[in-house]
C-alpha cells in the first residue's frame, strides 16, 4: 500500500504547503518510493528496544530564573515582512 494522492493533498494542508495538480502527482510518486524504502525497518523486531530520541543520556538541564534584557522592539521587528510601529501584522485571524 503506497501513499495516495489524497493523503499527499491532506498532508500539504497540514504542512501549510500548496501544490499544483502536476506537482501533487510527482510528489505522490516520489514520496511513495521513499515511504516504500523506509518500510524495510518493519523487518526488524524492535519489540523490546527503547526509542532513542536523544543520543546523550543527559537530563535536568535548567537555567536560573534571572531575567535578562530583551531585544529592543526595533531589532525584534526588523525582519518582519509586514509590521507597524508596535506589532507584526498578518491577514485577519478568524474565529479565534
Amino acid at each position: 500500500m503506497g501513499l495516495t494522492r489524497d493523503e499527499v493533498a491532506k498532508v500539504s494542508l497540514l504542512a501549510r504547503l500548496r501544490f499544483s495538480d502536476e506537482e501533487l502527482d510527482t510528489l505522490t510518486t516520489q514520496l511513495g518510493q521513499v515511504v516504500e524504502y523506509v518500510r524495510q525497518l518493519e523487518e526488524l523486531d524492535t519489540e523490546s528496544v527503547l526509542p532513542m530520541a536523544h543520543v546523550e543520556d543527559n537530563h535536568n538541564i535548567f537555567a536560573d530564573d534571572l531575567p535578562r534584557p530583551s531585544l529592543n522592539r526595533e531589532d525584534a521587528l526588523a525582519n518582519a515582512p509586514k509590521r507597524d510601529d508596535e506589532c507584526y501584522r498578518v491577514p485577519a485571524v478568524l474565529g479565534d
Partner: peptide
C-alpha cells in the same frame, strides 16, 4: 478595518 490582525509576542 477587517483586513489585519496585529501580533504581540
Amino acid at each position: 478595518g477587517k483586513s489585519d490582525s496585529r501580533i504581540d509576542l
